[in-house]
């Protein structure tokens, strides 16, 4: 049985290129073209130096679990069959103030510990509008550097 459709993201004009890269299975960050600060989520203007110059650079693709929840209540009808499921808040190894969310894959909730090293994987899923899209998910890192 295939997974039920997921609530799909609604990219904005700043984030569309990031979501398009995720669709190609590339995890990117913006980097300010003036001061070099990496940033996520995508925005047109650097909040450190106000520069509008920026480029896309590959993220390391690794991070550590900052916190997590185990969701038991079926808030979303589309995901009712998946409860209980974990949602992770991952601090990226690229910078202390960069966080991404995601579900835990290739492991169980019992494997979650604070600071667990994880790596990004890409999941092609069906959106609730019938179209496919791609999500960044997280699995325990196989080798800790």
């Amino acid at each position: 049985m295939s997974a039920p459709p997921r609530p799909r993201p609604w990219p904005d004009r700043d984030s569309a290129p990031w979501w398009e890269a995720v669709r190609r299975h590339e995890l990117l960050l913006q980097r300010c073209g003036h001061c070099g600060t990496p940033r996520f989520p995508p925005r047109a203007v650097c909040n450190r130096c106000r520069s509008r110059e920026s480029g896309w650079v590959p993220a390391m693709g690794t991070g550590r679990v900052y916190s997590w929840i185990v969701n038991h209540h079926a808030f979303m009808p589309a995901m009712a069959a998946e409860v209980p499921f974990a949602v992770l808040m991952v601090r990226l190894d690229d910078a202390d103030d960069l966080f991404m969310y995601g579900n835990l894959v290739a492991a169980g909730v019992a494997d979650l510990v604070p600071g667990l090293p994880v790596e990004a994987v890409f999941a092609d899923v069906l959106g609730d509008d019938g179209e496919g899209f791609t999500l960044v998910q997280w699995r325990p890192r196989r080798r800790t550097p």
């Binding site: 993201p9 984030s15 991404m100 579900n103």
Partner: peptide, 28 residues
């Protein structure tokens, strides 16, 4: 709000879930 696109696809939407994330961080 712009944050939602990075959360809702993972089943993260309700305020109780958001606060649970920070409650866990405090416990840790």
């Amino acid at each position: 709000v712009f944050d939602v696109q990075y959360q809702a696809p993972y089943g993260l939407l309700a305020p109780s879930q958001q606060f649970a994330m920070y409650a866990r961080a405090h416990m840790i």
